[in-house]
Amino acid sequence: MAEAVVSHGTAPEGGAKETRRDFLKLTAGAFAAVGVGAVVWPFIHSMNPARDVLALASTEVDLSPIATGQAVTVMWRGKPVFVRNRTPQEIEQARAVPLGELRDPQPDQARVQRDNWLVVLGVCTHLGCVPLGQKPTDARGEYGGWFCPCHGSHYDTSGRIRRGPAPLNLEVPTYTFTSDTQIRIG
């Protein structure tokens, strides 16, 4: 390098040239890095949910045919939603538990809008299996709610995790009562 500079002329001029070249190279390199970074984003973002996926159809559930003690499963966002019409005993059972005993402490009142109607996502918070407990013949686990057969998580009558590997309670989706006998999920 040095020899090349010398052959061009006096040293101070050459030195200035070298600095300018390095500066140029750095700037151009920085611009190129920004450019590459900016190019990567559209590719990554294209894999995020598209606009039609985000504008999900909401699901409406007619509650009138669900008798006390029964439950239905409806599909929302490609996942099952459990809607259970709880018996007074089940409500009682859920509310009698001291919060300190819970892994993910949440009072039952915070998980329902109307006492007897429990609406939760039917997706085990461990690794995403669908717990049993919707059909009368299903195993409901030791706490009378749901039991996940994949890895043995037990949920209570408020959908809260009580035993097993799952870390959190069954998620409550956003829903509204459009009338006394109908809810809209989403």
Binding site: P42, S46, A50, D52
Partner: peptide, 28 residues
């Protein structure tokens, strides 16, 4: 190809979905 559907009934609409709904789909 992650958003394209190779079926005569869906191909055209899937391409237009890429143009409209997929993030930066029109750019790709």
């Amino acid at each position: 190809s992650m958003n394209y559907t190779a079926h005569t009934a869906y191909a055209f609409d899937s391409v237009e979905r890429i143009m409209r709904d997929v993030n930066y789909g029109w750019l790709l």
